[in-house]
Design a protein around this nucleic acid. Structure first.
Lengths: 329, 329
DNA sequence: CACGGTCCCGTGAAGGTTCACGGAACGATC
DNA sequence: GATCGTTCCGTGAACCTTCACGGGACCGTG
């Protein structure tokens, strides 16, 4: 429980100076093989490990760290983005520190902001809190385009994707449109009521809208909401599910209820998860370019790094969607 | 592009000393309201942000950081563990930095080890590299029990779980056992050939073993391998799939091929993913206690922290499995 | 006037590492 | 024997923040 073993301890143990220890530890030149070995042994003996803080304090600007807030680890959409972010960051020499908002958003951001240079992710709260919780850090919002200064964003143009999907469904004969929305979005006040997806869908469906049912953002929640929607509006022949996870439950539930998909009702998800290939029929979905989100985010992060993370004019990038016609629609 | 803005810049901008800036930034006492406001404004104006390194250098011992190596973000088993680790760590005041081994394990561990106090995760390589790549950091291996000094482990007692599963399958009438193993494990030399799971299963099945087919560690890979297994050994009436992801493909493929599950063949997965509830019939699986893995890992991490991360005798914890009888077996 | 107390603020030091530079020892060269 | 170059190693400084302590200004009290 004694205090930490420092470079000086190793130096005196090996009978050399600090600098020589550094040379030995970092495989630098200007040191004899015998001395290097002696120092390394002393370090091993004492269990010496360089302080990452002191080290990074000296050569700052070297590596940058990005704090990623993952909305949920139970939805592959978010973990996919995290995966792309991670591999992309590694290629560009960035560190990624991940946090998941278990309780209060503030708690997560508080600890995270002390460790990183940029804050990135799906924060899922009123964005007024964002600037405050970030404590002066630049923020990249992956959820919606922000109007706050210092808050940048990468935005999925889902609206045109939904319009495209509804149009294509019409071409395939659909006339009565229903939707399952997420109950999750109701947790927040202004920013999310009603959900943008719902608004876009209702506008696209127009007079052909049958109804909207709200469900929990899980597989079973989607299945239940889907069944409820068909119970209330039996004439519905095309359903947009809030996301793929819920759509999986819909396909599954339709199968259990003996409802023909896409014969009687067409089902379309949102996200483009490869998981959609695991059900029968395979899930048709509006695919969101997760890799594009990640790379755009990292682009912004690098621009911010170039400006030494000083406040700059907000950057807003956008990625487009792509229809993935599989079996369910 | 100038150098970083430090506390001294803010101090001179506000016409005060360092310490007063600190007082203002950290909501400390002994400062007048007017001065605090003036300092905060100056900080805002300059975009000042305290260096996390310098700060943590001063009050060390405060927060500890854990480096988590996630084998794959495409398998919910690993992201589940990450989620549990993240929420558990937050509760205990730990930071988590996550990395995914995209290319070489060494690269990931190299950068990660500079940032954290403990290394944790599924490393999936020859463990000889582990001690080396950790660069003196304590390591907690989540994959197998290590014999190396300084490498601790949390181990899933899957062997008894497999024995239990095979026994229960026999009670249900199964007599011809087959398995789909992972091709992934063939990437590594000594430690993984053949995979422990396969050895345990072959021993448990004994003379009732029909055959083993190797497949890619994905949903479709599992489906293909499953079909191949049944083609080669049509009399197989019970199959252990390497993990749930592959088992999902098996159930799916059986459905497509018109094979009755569990009537003609029983399918058992490994992991206990909730995703298994999304297929029909729902997947029976040997559930691994992911939360237990996370909490045990954090326990070990805290013990290591108490010892200031100095080398101590390896700690090995173990968690048990639990059969989840759903529909497929 | 002397003294104590409060309020506000500043200076030295520490924390552990790396960079830049200087310097000693030694053999080689002219 | 003086000079030079090489090899190896050590000392001062810097990185940026916080902690511990001290000190001046001001007010009130005896």
């Amino acid at each position: 429980m004694g205090s930490r073993v420092t470079i000086l301890d190793v130096a005196s143990e090996a009978g050399v100076s600090r600098q020589t220890v550094t040379r030995a530890m970092n495989d630098m030149a200007d040191i004899s093989e015998a001395t290097r070995k002696r120092v390394l042994e002393a370090a091993e003996r004492l269990g010496y490990r360089p302080s990452r803080f002191a080290r990074n304090l000296v050569n700052r600007q070297k590596t940058h760290a990005l704090g990623l807030v993952v909305a949920s680890f139970r939805n592959p959409y978010y973990t996919d983005i995290a995966a792309d972010m991670l591999s992309g960051a590694a290629k560009r020499g960035w560190q990624v520190m991940i946090a998941a908002p278990d309780g209060e958003l503030e708690d997560v951001l508080g600890v995270l902001s002390a460790q990183v240079d940029v804050l990135v992710g799906h924060f899922g709260g009123p964005e007024a809190d964002l600037r405050e919780a970030g404590r002066g850090l630049p923020v990249v919002n992956l959820e919606l385009v922000s109007t706050l200064p210092g808050v940048h964003s990468v935005h999925v143009d889902l609206e045109s994707g939904i319009v495209e999907a509804v149009g294509a469904l019409r071409e395939r004969g659909a006339r009565r449109f229903g939707m399952v929305d997420s109950a999750y979005t109701q947790r927040f006040s202004r920013a999310y009521e009603p959900s943008p997806r719902r608004e876009w869908f209702e506008r696209a469906a127009g007079s052909q809208l049958t109804g909207v049912v709200v469900g929990e953002e899980t597989i079973s929640g989607g299945g239940q909401a889907f069944a409820e929607l068909l119970r209330r509006h039996p004439d519905t022949d095309a359903v947009l599910m809030f996301n793929d996870l819920m759509a999986l439950g819909a396909v599954q539930n339709a199968h259990a209820l003996g409802i023909d998909v896409p014969g009687r009702v067409r089902i379309v998800g949102v996200d483009g998860l490869s998981l959609g290939e695991a059900v029968d029929p395979q899930l048709t979905t509006i695919s969101l370019d997760r890799q594009g989100i990640a790379s755009n985010t990292l682009d912004i992060a690098e621009i911010l790094a170039k400006a030494d993370f000083a406040p700059i004019a907000p950057i807003h990038r956008s990625v487009r969607t792509q229809m993935l016609w599989r079996g369910s629609a």
